[in-house]
Nucleic acid binder design. Structure first.
Length: 150
DNA sequence: GCCAACGTTGGC
DNA sequence: GCCAACGTTGGC
């Protein structure tokens, strides 16, 4: 079992939206590195930190779970979607997604600021300068360190 | 809104 | 293959 962190802008899709919907296809990933994590690394049952980005209080707000194998992101074939990719074909789809299921909200948000203050997390990918990946692996030790803050 | 840090694109 | 221009992400 692997651990991950997935970012979402709460104005677009928040942890409460996931709670309400219970399970959601994580569409719109258009970065090759992130795609590779989804396609090659994720397995059903993997645990996911749900991270709110680009907002007043960036941080981890909940836990989700990988609920499907990777499959082609349908929005890449839809000309009306903002994620449409004219270069992608159904025979050779370029972008993949997994379904993500709600597990629980954290008792409280663990903010980016708090994470940055912990030396135990200094080498966490999320905290490295200039990191813009929306899907990141989380080391097991880091997962537990972060949960212990809750 | 600013801007640093990327990733991507395309001319050469 | 290089690299400048451009677009995007995301903290602040």
């Amino acid at each position: 079992m692997n651990y991950w962190l997935m970012k979402s802008e709460p104005e677009a899709f928040s942890i409460d939206d996931l709670k309400r919907k219970k399970c959601e296809p994580w569409d719109g990933v258009r970065n090759y590195q992130a795609r590779n994590f989804i396609r090659d690394g994720m397995q059903v049952g993997d645990q996911v930190f749900f991270y709110h980005s680009n907002c007043a209080q960036p941080g981890i707000t909940g836990i989700a779970e990988v609920a499907s194998d990777a499959y082609p992101d349908p929005t890449q074939f839809d000309p009306k979607s903002k994620y449409f990719d004219p270069e992608s074909t159904r025979d050779r789809p370029r972008w993949m997604l997994v379904d993500v299921a709600f597990v629980r909200k954290l008792k409280r948000s663990i903010t980016l600021k708090e994470l940055q203050a912990l030396s135990a997390l200094a080498d966490m990918k999320l905290l490295r300068k200039g990191n813009r990946l929306s899907v990141l692996p989380v080391m097991t030790e880091h997962w537990h360190t972060i949960l212990s803050l809750e």
